[in-house]
Design a protein around this nucleic acid. Structure first.
Length: 213
DNA sequence: TTATCGATTCTCT
DNA sequence: GAGAATCGATAAA
């Protein structure tokens, strides 16, 4: 087991509340939406103590895409994925080094109507159940109205964000391999996914390709 | 219930 | 040009 910034921070984010005021989202502005975080993943990058993390965007060097992961801790790294989704990370390591925690899922505890209208925009099928409003990293960003051009690199502890720790109570934390990460980095040797056990908002596990036992 | 597949575009090789 | 830290619909079992 390895110890490094993102790995220390990831479990602490479970149960925390992330509020995003909607005004930066031009397509779907609205009242603030608050997420109770229930699932996260840690990623290591350049300059972070611990093993080489082949699943990390910042595994080798700084690029235009991952630049904010090398920025100050406590800020957002927002990336665009699979041609259609955004996902948000909290940067964890000192400026100049890279590590982050991907916010994978949560429960919408305020602003559910705005979140639902953003999620359902452009789709014509069944209404989305409450527990699926922010299930999966792409859905988290969608429900909160987060995009790369408007939110990448911003401080998570200042407007339009407001991140606050919250006690987890009697809930238990579970951990396991990360979702969709290929190769050894997606194996049980990297149990860097953390979630609140039994919570219905936690996303489904999907193994990456070529993951060894 | 589980498996497969298409959508869509950015990033790096 | 290939692959990607995904999602949701549809098909199969």
């Amino acid at each position: 087991m390895f110890l490094a910034p993102a790995l220390e921070v990831a479990p602490l984010l479970l149960g925390a509340r992330l509020t995003v005021s909607g005004h930066l989202n031009r397509q779907h502005p609205g009242v603030p939406v608050t997420l109770r975080i229930t699932e996260v993943e840690a990623y290591h990058g350049v300059g972070t103590p611990g093993p080489y993390d082949a699943g990390s965007h910042s595994r080798d060097r700084r690029t235009e895409r991952n630049a904010s992961m090398f920025g100050p801790p406590g800020h957002a790294y927002v990336y665009f994925s699979y041609g259609m989704h955004f996902a948000i990370n909290m940067v964890c390591s000192p400026e100049g080094t890279a590590s982050g925690v991907l916010i994978r899922a949560g429960e919408i505890v305020a602003g559910a109507e705005v979140a639902r209208s953003r999620r359902e925009a452009g789709r014509s099928s069944n209404p989305i159940p409450d527990h699926q409003l922010a299930r999966g990293p792409g859905n988290v960003a969608s429900a909160l109205g987060i995009t790369r051009p408007s939110h990448d690199g911003l401080d998570l502890f200042a407007a339009p964000f407001d991140l606050r720790a919250a006690p987890l109570g009697s809930k238990k934390i579970a951990s396991g391999p990360r979702v969709g990460v290929s190769g050894e980095a997606g194996s049980a040797r990297f149990p860097w996914r953390f979630w609140i056990e039994g919570d219905p908002t936690v996303s489904a596990y999907r193994p990456g390709r070529n993951v060894p036992k």
